[in-house]
Simulated scan of single mutants.
Amino acid sequence: MGLERRVSGGSFRLAQARAEYFRLMQQGVSSREACRRVGVDPRRGKMWRNGRVPKPRGGRAEVSGRFLSESERVHIADRCRERAGVRVIARELGRDPSTVSRELRRNCQQNGAYRPHGAHARARARRPRPKRGKIARDGRLRQVVETKLGHQWSPEQIAAYLRRRFPGQPDRHVVHETIYQAMYHRHRGRLRQHSCRQLRSGRRRRRSRRETRQRQHFFVTPSVMLDHRPAEAADRAVPGHWEGDLLIGRNNATAIITLVERTTRYVTLVALPWGQTPQHVNTALRRSLARVPRHLTRTLTWDQGSELAYHEEFTARTGIPVFFCDAASPWQRGSNENTNRLLRQYFPKGTDPPRQQTQLTDIARELNTRPRKTLNWDTPKHRWTTLLTSK
C-alpha cells in the first residue's frame, strides 16, 4: 500500500498515516509493525498512542485532545444562552464539570457574556511555553532562594522555609521542583549562574534516574547480625541507637567516622588523624561515644567493613552491642548513608576530609542545625538537646 514508504512532509499525509496506524492497531498488529507499514518511526507511534501529536514539518501542530477545541467552546456558549447547567454541558461534551466551570470563570466578560472565539484565541495565546516562573518574576523571592542555596540548603528545605517565612503570601510559596527548574532551566527562574553546583550532587545536568554503583565490601566475622537487633531500634521509637561508617578520602589514604543517631538524626563526626586501622577506629569510637550519656548509647549498627574487626573488644569496654548489616545492603543503615551523601558536598570524592577535629565539629554543627523533612522540619540539634535535658 502507498503508506508503506517513509512518510514525509505535510499535515495531511501524517494525519492519513496516523489513522492507518490506529486501524492496524485495532486489528491486533503490534505498534512496531504498524509503524513499519505506515512508514513512520516507532517513537512517533508511541507519541500517537500517548495522545501527543508532534508538529509536522511545514505545518501547524495539532492541539492535544485534553484542550478544549473551538467547536466545544461554541457549544458551551450556545448552551449557556439556553441556561443549561455546567454539569449538563460537561456531560454533553464528555468533559469533567470542572473543565467547563474553569473555562467560564477564566473567559467570561464583566457583564457575564461568554464569547467563544475570543476565549479560544486567548487560550491559544496562553499555551506557548516557556513562561516566566515565580522565581523569575519576584526579585525578593529569588534573593531568598539564592541565599539559602549559598548556605547549602536543599530545594525541599527551602520550599518548606518559604511557607513559614511568608505565611500570608502564597505567591511566594513554591515547590522544590520549581527551584530545580529555575536552576537547570535559566528561562524559568534566572538564578545565579552555576547555582546547581551548590546542590548536594553538584550536577550541572539533571539525570532521569540515579545510577547504581556497586562498592567493594570487606567482610569480618560478625558476632551478631542485624536480624537480632532490638525491635525498638527498627521503629526509631526509642533514642540511643546509632548507625556508623567510614567516609573515605582520596586513594583510601584518609578517613573519618560518621555517626548518626536514628531517632533524632543527630550527626557526630570523628577524626582519624593517625590512620584508619581497626585499632585506631576502635579507640576513636570509644572516646567519642564515651561523651554521650549511657541511656543514649544503646546499640551501634555498622556495615561489614574490616575497620570494625575489634567489635568484640569495643562491646566489652563500652557495653554497646554492635550489629552488622547484610552484605550489599546499604539501605539497612539509611540514615548514615544519607548523611555520608550530604557530607560529599563538603568532601567530594577524590578529596581528603580534614584531620582536625575542630573542622569536623563545625561541619557537624551545620548539618545538625538544618531543618529536616523527616523531623517535620525540626532540626536534629533541637531534638538532641531535648533528649539531653529531659533526663
Results as ranks from 00 to 15, higher is better:
3 L>A: 09
3 L>D: 04
3 L>S: 10
10 G>W: 02
11 S>N: 11
11 S>K: 09
12 F>T: 13
12 F>I: 15
13 R>I: 12
16 Q>I: 13
18 R>V: 00
19 A>G: 06
20 E>G: 02
22 F>K: 10
24 L>H: 02
28 G>K: 06
28 G>S: 01
29 V>K: 07
32 R>V: 10
34 A>G: 03
34 A>Q: 00
35 C>K: 06
37 R>Y: 05
38 V>H: 03
39 G>R: 03
40 V>P: 03
43 R>T: 02
50 N>R: 06
53 V>R: 02
54 P>Y: 00
55 K>L: 05
59 G>D: 05
66 R>A: 13
67 F>L: 15
68 L>A: 12
69 S>V: 05
69 S>F: 05
70 E>S: 14
72 E>C: 07
73 R>A: 11
77 A>P: 07
78 D>K: 09
79 R>F: 08
81 R>E: 13
81 R>S: 14
82 E>R: 14
85 G>I: 04
87 R>E: 12
88 V>H: 07
94 G>E: 13
95 R>N: 01
100 V>R: 05
113 A>R: 15
115 R>I: 02
115 R>T: 08
115 R>D: 14
116 P>Q: 06
116 P>E: 00
117 H>M: 12
119 A>E: 02
123 A>S: 08
125 A>N: 05
125 A>D: 07
127 R>C: 06
129 R>Q: 13
130 P>L: 08
131 K>F: 10
131 K>P: 08
133 G>L: 07
134 K>I: 11
136 A>K: 05
139 G>T: 15
139 G>P: 05
151 H>E: 15
152 Q>M: 15
152 Q>L: 15
155 P>M: 09
157 Q>K: 13
160 A>K: 02
161 Y>P: 01
162 L>I: 02
169 Q>W: 03
173 H>T: 03
175 V>W: 06
175 V>G: 11
176 H>T: 04
185 H>R: 12
185 H>M: 03
186 R>G: 02
193 Q>V: 14
195 S>K: 05
197 R>T: 08
201 S>D: 12
204 R>M: 08
211 E>C: 01
213 R>S: 10
214 Q>W: 10
218 F>G: 13
223 S>M: 05
228 H>S: 14
229 R>W: 02
230 P>W: 00
230 P>E: 01
236 R>G: 04
238 V>D: 01
252 N>T: 11
254 T>E: 14
256 I>Q: 12
257 I>V: 08
257 I>C: 09
259 L>R: 01
262 R>D: 08
263 T>Q: 05
265 R>D: 15
277 T>R: 04
279 Q>T: 04
282 N>H: 15
283 T>M: 07
286 R>L: 00
290 A>W: 06
294 R>M: 12
297 T>E: 03
297 T>G: 02
301 T>I: 07
301 T>Q: 06
302 W>L: 15
302 W>S: 11
303 D>C: 07
305 G>M: 13
312 E>G: 11
312 E>I: 12
330 P>S: 02
331 W>H: 11
332 Q>T: 06
335 S>W: 01
338 N>T: 04
339 T>L: 14
340 N>C: 09
343 L>H: 07
347 F>K: 00
348 P>S: 11
349 K>P: 04
355 R>P: 00
361 T>G: 14
367 L>W: 02
368 N>G: 15
377 W>R: 05
381 K>H: 13
384 W>N: 10
384 W>A: 12
385 T>E: 15
386 T>H: 12
386 T>F: 09
387 L>V: 08
389 T>M: 14
390 S>E: 15
391 K>N: 10
